[in-house]
């Protein structure tokens, strides 16, 4: 143990915790009695039927194997592979998110550069920001008249605020020295924005983007439960209606894995724009 590096020791501990956790889970699920062991009374009461219960991890892993070995099958509206469902969710998240970024980053720039704009827009931001994104759903459904677009709108509205606020904050906080460098080199407003202010504020902006993508992924599951049709959120709800808890647990895990991957991608971007003063 002493010969291992910190990372190796941490990995061993992680695997150990996983193994113990799975074992406890597996052992805590009571086994169903086989039909032959039942008394006549029990059989008469219909207890020979298989009862729904929380599945043990072995079943979940078998399900995962089955689903992941053919993720893109499409056998009708209520039976699509996990890959297709996740694909729909990611498509909605990225569309809503990209629209939000397209508006939030330039607008945040403007707010950060101009104290007047900041003061003027701040009350609106403060009122709109704490609204649960799902509260917009009825209004969005009524106005847009399209459940697909409404889900995207909900993602848009939930991911815009962290990006907007962080961009404004990052731009407003750019060191005056660097702005002075731009001024003494006679850089125009556009060149100053792109060559000095954007790289200076980039770490703060990307932090906002990272928070936004996390929130967007949280919200898409709930949004898809409401709008239905496709997507990982719909899949979870559909499997609950089917009382297939194995699939529910499997999809919960998949939501976690995809969320982690999205976050990691922004982690890479964050390291790329980071600088040391």
């Amino acid at each position: 143990m002493a010969g291992l590096s910190l990372n190796q020791r941490a990995a061993v501990l992680s695997l150990l915790l996983l193994a113990v956790g799975l074992l406890v889970w597996e052992l805590s699920i009571p086994a169903q009695k086989a039909a032959t062991e039942l008394t006549e009374y029990e059989r008469l009461m219909g207890l020979g039927q298989e009862r729904a219960g929380v599945p043990p991890p072995s079943q979940v892993m078998a399900k995962a194997w089955e689903q992941l070995s053919d993720p893109f099958y499409d056998a009708g509206p209520n039976d699509k592979g996990i890959g297709i469902q996740i694909g729909y969710s990611i498509y909605r998240v990225l569309t809503g998110y990209a629209l939000a970024a397209l508006i939030a980053i330039p607008l945040g720039f403007l707010i950060g550069m101009s104290p007047v704009a900041y003061k003027a827009l701040n009350p609106f931001i403060q009122v709109l920001r704490p609204i649960s994104p799902l509260a917009w759903m009825p209004l969005a459904l009524f106005i847009i008249q399209d459940s697909e677009a409404s889900a995207i709108f909900v993602i848009f509205i939930c991911s815009i605020w962290p990006m907007l606020i962080n961009t404004a904050f990052g731009v407003a906080g750019v060191r005056q020295d660097w702005v002075n460098v731009a001024r003494t080199h006679e850089l125009g407003p556009l060149r100053t924005a792109f060559t000095v202010i954007l790289p200076a504020a980039a770490p703060t902006i990307v932090t906002g983007m990272r928070i936004s993508i996390g929130i967007a992924w949280l919200v898409i599951v709930a949004a898809e439960m409401l709008v239905g049709g496709t997507g990982i959120g719909y899949y979870v709800w559909n499997e609950w209606n089917n009382l297939d808890l194995t699939s529910v647990i499997f999809s919960i895990l998949m939501i976690g894995v995809v969320g982690m991957a999205l976050d990691a991608a922004f982690g890479v971007l964050q390291r790329a724009v980071a600088y040391v003063e």
Binding site: D177, W178, N180, T184, H185, P199, A200, A202
Partner: peptide, 18 residues
């Protein structure tokens, strides 16, 4: 206003760290 005709060396260097 500032101009390229007047170069400035600041005390804190003011290099762009990125």
């Amino acid at each position: 206003g500032p101009s390229l005709d007047r170069g400035v060396v600041f005390q804190n260097y003011s290099l762009l760290p990125w």
